[in-house]
Design a protein around this nucleic acid. Structure first.
Lengths: 235, 235
DNA sequence: CAGTGGTCTAGACCACTAC
DNA sequence: TAGTGGTCTAGACCACTGA
């Protein structure tokens, strides 16, 4: 049934099981590399790799000269994935529709220029698209785009490809910042999403960077009760 | 100034820089291990480690027999950290106060029992605590606790230690699930937080597991404009 | 088939920590 | 000072991919 596991994985499983079962608990010292070498009959490099990877996961804390310890998981850290809205809806087996409300170019106001790392007055593209899941408004996408990174942005048919997907294609991503907050819907947001002004919305703002600079800034507004971010982690 | 970097880090920096600068872009093949060995004059194990770690970060995709490639970063993934409220406020250099509003034990209703993985009617502890930052309400913490995991929960002084910190101390964490949403404040939430009912709030729900089972379920309500989750990632 | 990555070893030297 | 982890080497054998 099970493939034969690499030996470093066996060492990891042994430690993970001990932590999950409570044999070792937060702050406890784990066996030293030398002890694990003896116990498993493997080389030190193998044991070292096993422990190093557990450290990267955040499960173990290692200290030179002292030993390896069960890490305090006080910081509930987990990988949060922000997915393309089309993929997300498709993954639920639902129908996704995108309605471009507005597209064009203009001179950047100060705040807009800051968001893209450009000078005030620079030419920028903007778009405003409503995404529906099975006909119900799920996300209002308000986006600024750096023309230098995606000169053909305005010629795309965003009923067929999401801006996220298109931009990833033309401008490889090398980094991003984002923030998540709860905000009352503005009058415009409410009108587009079919809400009352002030209704709670989950808002994600994200700035994406590529080798050539900031590609795009986007603000995603979701009706509070129709969108969740979920995550988990496991020892 | 700079410490001398380990050699595997030098290899990583070289690859990272090439990706950030656009020398290699999504899907491109990176130099093989053998080529990097020759280029840097290090052993293959060192190069292997450098590439393996970049793969764990999600920056590189490796395929046996084929090569190492620049990974598509389509899924904006990043580590989201949910920190203890006391730490978070202290880190900002502000004053944290906790006001226990309610504490006690009761029989679990169906939903409460589900949240803790217990039977309906089981004895559970509950608490409701308001956290202030420099006097301003920042978080309303509503919590259910499994008495089997923390029998002395109700005897604690939560003005001095947060429930999060206490529970981590008595019941080591081995996993958690959480979800984040935007919700309008209920009448009770609004009263505690000094808001109007319906005002947007960022709500985090989290269930924490330990070797003995589900330790606690918590619902953290934050005034929308006073709490953000931030994150970033970098190639 | 030649080239790639996946794993592993048995040493080595070093920096750090605790006693 | 003895024990710990941090790094590194120069080999090795294997499984896999692509021409």
């Amino acid at each position: 049934m099970a493939d034969i596991e690499p030996r470093y994985v066996l060492v990891q499983s042994h430690l993970r099981d001990g932590i999950k079962s409570g044999q070792w608990t937060v702050g406890d010292r784990l066996p030293s590399e030398a002890e694990l070498v003896a116990q498993f009959g493997v080389s030190r490099m193998t044991v070292n790799r096993a422990l190093r990877e557990l450290e990267q996961e955040g499960l173990v804390r290692r200290q030179q000269g002292a030993g390896s310890f069960v890490a305090p998981l006080e910081r509930v850290a987990s990988t949060l994935v922000i997915r393309d809205i089309h993929e997300e809806i498709a993954a639920r087996g639902h129908r996704h529709e995108a309605e471009p409300l507005q597209m064009g170019e203009r001179r950047a106001r100060r705040q807009e220029a800051e968001r893209l790392g450009l000078e005030t007055g620079a030419r920028i593209f903007h778009s405003r698209i409503l995404h529906r899941e099975n006909g119900l408004p799920l996300q209002l996408e308000e986006r600024l785009v750096n023309p230098a990174c995606a000169p053909d942005y305005l010629q795309q048919d965003f009923r067929r490809i999401t801006p996220t997907a298109y931009l990833l294609q033309v401008a490889p991503l090398t980094g991003a910042d984002y923030q998540i907050e709860a905000v009352g819907a503005s009058v415009e947001d409410a009108a587009a999403l079919g809400l009352q002004a002030g209704d709670p919305c989950l808002v994600i703002e994200r700035r994406s960077r590529s080798p050539a600079g900031t590609v795009t800034w986007v603000r995603l507004v979701h009706p509070g009760q129709r969108h969740l971010l979920k995550g988990s982690f496991e020892a």
